[in-house]
Simulated assay, not measured.
Amino acid sequence: MTEREREILSLILNNPMISQNEIADLLGISRSGVAAHIFNLTKKGYIEGRGYIIKESDFVSIIGGINMDILGISLDSLILNNSNPGKISFALGGAGRNISLGLTKLNVPNYFISVHGDDLNGDKFKQDSQKNGMNIQYVKELPNERTSTYLYIDDQKGNRAVGIDDMDIYEKINSEFLKDKIDIINNSRYCIIDTNLTTEAIDWIYEHCKVPIFVKTVSENKNYKLLSQLNKVNTLITTPNELKGIIRVLTDSELSLNKSLDLLLNNGVGNILVYSPDDGLYFKNNEELFHIHKKSDKAINKTGASASLTSALVWALTKNFTWKDSLHYAYAAAAISIESPFPISEDLSTDTLVTTHTLLFG
């Protein structure tokens, strides 16, 4: 989809009965030019029928975080209360932003809904989004606010030692902020949220969202927020440690992986993925159970692997692949991610995804 086609599709999403003359006036182009773009959008399958009916499978909505990630990696075993030689890097992240970027790289149209501050990191996010072709028309810049920042330290093996997040800005993603975006959300194929959102925001989405909800967990101390209506969660993507945290809140005890998955399924979750680069991918729903684990010797960065996995999973599901095939592609995307220094690999594309999938699974 070209940038002009994205603009026209956005106007149609907001007003499916808008005329070609009105679109031409708003964009400052000719009516015949609008007609040509609409013809192309119809030919490509993005819209169909009279009244510019948007196809159900056309796009995905994502509601979640934008972070500036500051990563310190020790060159040796970490020594507490001491200076540790290592490397420090800065990268844009946030589960929501990473998933949106991953979907964009896989040519899945998506609308990212979030907030950032009017600071240097907010400017970097806007510039990076423009460079990567992300649709951020529903991302709001908030005056006198700081863009969310996540500072963390990993040991030389890439294991997280400690992290500190400055994410008060997400309190601005509230019911008032979300209510005028509900039509976009409910016209999407799937709505993906992350647990950076407040309890209020997640509960509001549970009550008002009419499409399947995918939840991507982000931190052990935030995931309790998704528990109020687990029956509204179509698909949960989490990690082994975060799963243990969820189960402790539900039962005040620790359960085996299989019993943990069964507990969530019994509470109404439709599908559950548990992933880590070390343990592989576990999946369970009421009909199927899978475990995929193929060790990589090239892993250099575990941050963003779950977001890449989520993006590829949704890509595959929008193509109506089976769960088994979708999980294989999701695992392939995670494998691409962990071999990149960035949360979402610059090399991620449908071509590299298919190639990696073939190498891993034949």
Rank of each mutant, 00 (worst) to 15 (best):
K222Y: 01
I246E: 02
N241Q: 14
V211C: 00
D262A: 10
N221S: 14
I246T: 08
K232S: 11
K216E: 14
I205H: 02
S188M: 03
C191A: 12
N223A: 12
S253W: 04
N221R: 13
N223Y: 00
E254S: 15
E254G: 01
I246M: 12
T198R: 03
E200T: 08
V233W: 01
E242M: 14
I213W: 02
L265I: 09
L243P: 06
T251I: 12
Y206R: 08
S253H: 10
S260A: 08
I202S: 01
T195C: 11
N187E: 05
K222G: 00
N231D: 15
T239N: 15
K232P: 06
D203E: 14
D194A: 01
L263Y: 03
I237R: 03
N187L: 04
T238F: 05
P240F: 08
I185G: 09
D194V: 06
R189M: 15
L255N: 06
I205D: 05
L264D: 00
T239L: 11
C209Y: 02
P240G: 03
N241K: 14
C191D: 07
S228V: 07
S219E: 09
S260G: 09
L263D: 05
C191K: 09
S260E: 05
L264V: 02
I247C: 00
I247D: 05
L261S: 03
D203L: 10
I202H: 00
N186Q: 09
A201G: 08
R189S: 14
A201H: 02
K225N: 06
K232L: 08
N241D: 14
S260Q: 04
V211W: 00
K225I: 03
W204P: 05
V211S: 10
Y190W: 09
I193H: 04
L257H: 05
Y206D: 10
I247A: 00
E242K: 06
T238I: 04
K259S: 13
Y224S: 14
N186C: 08
L265R: 02
Y224K: 11
I192A: 11
S219N: 13
D252C: 13
T251M: 12
K259P: 04
N231Y: 12
S260H: 08
S228Q: 13
S253D: 12
L255P: 01
V218S: 10
Q229E: 13
